[in-house]
C-alpha cells in the first residue's frame, strides 16, 4: 500500500466541516421528504389511471411511466434545470433562472416526478394482486367504480405494497445525492467539498456513508411503525 496517506478522521467533526455535513444532511432530508410527498400523491394517481377502462388515459399514463423510468435521473434533472426554464420562452426563462435556490426546487420536483413513476408501477402491481373476485364483490354492492377505488381498492393496494414502497422511500433519500450534479449542497456534495478543501475525501465519504446508513435505518423503522398501524390482520402473511 502506498501509505504516504495520513488518515485524518477529525474532518468529520472539526468545524466548519462537521457543520457542512450536518447542513448537507438537512438538505438531504428536506429534499427527500418533499420529493416523497410529490412522488406518493402523483404516483397513486397515475398508478390508478393506469388501470382505468379508458384506453387513452391508460396510454397517457403508461407513456408517463415509461418515459420517467427509462431515462436516468441525472439526465432528467439536467433537463429540468438547464432546459426547463427555456421551455417557457425567452423572457420567462431569464426570470426563472434568477430564482435563488432554483436547483433546490428543481431537485425536489425532478426527483418527485421520477419516483412517482416508480410508485405508479408498484400501485399497478398492487392492483393486479387483488383478486378479480374482490372487485366484483364490491361492485355488486352497488358502488360506482370511482367509489370502489377510493374506499376499497386503493387503501387495500397501498397496504399490500408497503414493502416495495419502503424500498422506494429508502431509494429516494439515496437519489437525493444525484442533485449534487446540479449544484445542490446535500450530504454527498458536502463530503466531496470536504475533500476539495482538505484532501481527506476518504474519511469524509466514509462518514457520509455511515450517516446514510442511519438515515436508512430510520426510514425502515418509520415504515415499520406505519405498517403495524395499518396492518390488515391475517391477510398479508405476517
Amino acid at each position: 500500500m502506498g501509505l504516504a496517506y495520513k488518515f485524518d478522521w477529525s474532518v468529520l467533526w472539526r468545524q466548519p466541516y462537521g457543520m457542512w455535513l450536518l447542513k448537507g444532511l438537512g438538505l438531504t432530508i428536506v429534499i427527500g421528504l418533499s420529493a416523497w410527498v410529490i412522488a406518493l400523491s402523483l404516483g397513486i394517481v397515475i398508478g390508478t389511471l393506469r388501470v382505468t377502462q379508458y384506453r387513452l388515459v391508460r396510454f397517457v399514463s403508461t407513456t408517463y411511466v415509461e418515459v420517467f423510468r427509462n431515462i436516468p435521473l441525472i439526465v432528467q434533472l439536467f433537463f429540468w434545470y438547464y432546459a426547463g426554464p427555456m421551455l417557457f420562452g425567452e423572457t420567462l426563462s431569464r426570470e426563472i433562472n434568477h430564482i435563488s435556490g432554483l436547483n433546490f426546487y428543481v431537485a425536489i420536483i425532478g426527483l418527485g416526478l421520477y419516483t412517482s413513476s416508480r410508485i405508479a408501477e408498484h400501485m399497478r402491481a398492487g392492483f393486479a394482486s387483488i383478486g378479480r373476485d374482490q372487485y366484483q364483490a364490491v361492485l355488486s354492492t352497488g358502488m360506482t367504480r370511482v367509489q370502489m377505488y377510493r374506499y376499497v381498492i386503493i387503501p387495500y393496494a397501498l397496504r399490500l405494497i408497503i414493502p416495495p414502497i419502503t424500498t422506494e422511500f429508502l431509494t429516494i433519500f439515496k437519489n437525493t445525492s444525484v442533485a449534487m450534479t446540479i449544484g445542490v449542497a446535500e450530504l454527498t456534495f458536502q463530503s466531496y467539498q470536504i475533500d476539495a478543501e482538505t484532501f481527506h475525501g476518504l474519511e469524509a465519504t466514509t462518514g457520509a456513508m455511515i450517516i446514510y446508513l442511519f438515515l436508512g435505518l430510520g426510514v425502515v423503522k418509520f415504515m415499520g411503525l406505519i405498517e403495524s398501524r395499518v396492518r390488515i390482520r391475517g391477510l398479508v402473511g405476517r
Partner: peptide, 25 residues
C-alpha cells in the same frame, strides 16, 4: 446490506479516493 443502503455516487467517490491510496499513484 451495507452497499444497498448508500447512494451509488458516494460509492463512486469512495473508490475514486481509496484506489490511489491502495495502488500508490
Amino acid at each position: 446490506n451495507f452497499l444497498r443502503n448508500i447512494p451509488l455516487i458516494l460509492v463512486i467517490f469512495w473508490f475514486y479516493f481509496v484506489m490511489p491510496i491502495i495502488i500508490g499513484r
